[in-house]
């Protein structure tokens, strides 16, 4: 059985942040938490790339390795989930994760640390599927309904893929074969044909 994986096609991501909004809305995520975020490198320059990042559901998850109360578990298809009833909010997983996936809810009073929150691959947590309690703690359980994570399903350019790793890699491989090595016809070159930074306004260059 293959593992469930996210894959973000950086050549297609347009930094619209719709995946972030969809995630926050679907799971009623608190204001101070973003289970998914979009990172842009070389912002405003030629070769700019954006990538949508959330929990990558690691095979050997460092969050699970450092958790002192062992509240993390992995499903048979590789989705890394955690039990908020066990979590003590120590934040070790936050420091261990290279993607910044587990985050603190900071809505409570000082010194009330609460429970860590992270992307669940829309698979909820260890409570009855789609029960009000599960929704309150972990958000909606779309996997139990036979649906994929909403961030990937609603991505307008289909940059963000989610699902069985074999199928996802197959989709990506076909894309690369079709478009070749360069994607210049798609982004910067489409907006500024045949030129680099020189045709941008002075204000844009300063940014």
């Amino acid at each position: 059985m293959a593992r469930m994986k996210f894959l973000c096609d950086v050549e297609r991501c347009i930094e619209c942040n719709a995946c972030v909004t969809a995630c926050n809305n679907e799971h009623d995520v608190p204001w101070d938490i973003n289970r998914r975020h979009v990172v842009t490198i070389n912002d405003g320059k030629r070769g700019e790339k954006s990538i949508s990042v959330a929990c990558m559901h690691c095979t050997d998850a460092p969050c699970a390795a450092v958790c002192p109360v062992d509240c993390f578990y992995t499903t048979v298809d590789g989705i890394v989930l955690h039990d908020k009833d066990l979590c003590i909010g120590c934040g070790y997983c936050f420091y261990a994760c290279p993607f910044g996936a587990p985050q603190y809810p900071e809505q409570q009073a000082f010194n009330v640390r609460g429970k860590m929150d992270k992307c669940t691959f829309c698979a909820g947590g260890p409570l009855p599927d789609n029960s009000p309690e599960e929704y309150r703690k972990y958000g909606r359980n779309r996997i139990a309904e036979g649906k994929l994570p909403l961030c990937a399903e609603m991505c307008s350019t289909k940059a963000l893929l989610a699902g069985d790793g074999t199928l996802v890699s197959d989709i990506y491989r076909k894309r690369v074969m079709k478009r070749g090595g360069s994607m210049d016809f798609w982004r910067w070159e489409a907006a500024y044909p045949g030129q680099g930074n020189e045709n941008r306004s002075e204000n844009d260059k300063e940014k």
């Binding site: 699970a64 390795a65 109360v69 062992d70 509240c71 993390f72 578990y73 499903t75 048979v76 989930l81 039990d83 009833d85 066990l86 698979a123 909820g124 947590g125 260890p126 409570l127 009855p128 599927d129 359980n141 996997i143 139990a144």
Partner: peptide
């Protein structure tokens, strides 16, 4: 590293 929480019905 042994998970000690409740069983997830999704599993």
């Amino acid at each position: 590293h042994d998970y000690k929480g409740a069983d997830d019905p999704l599993l």
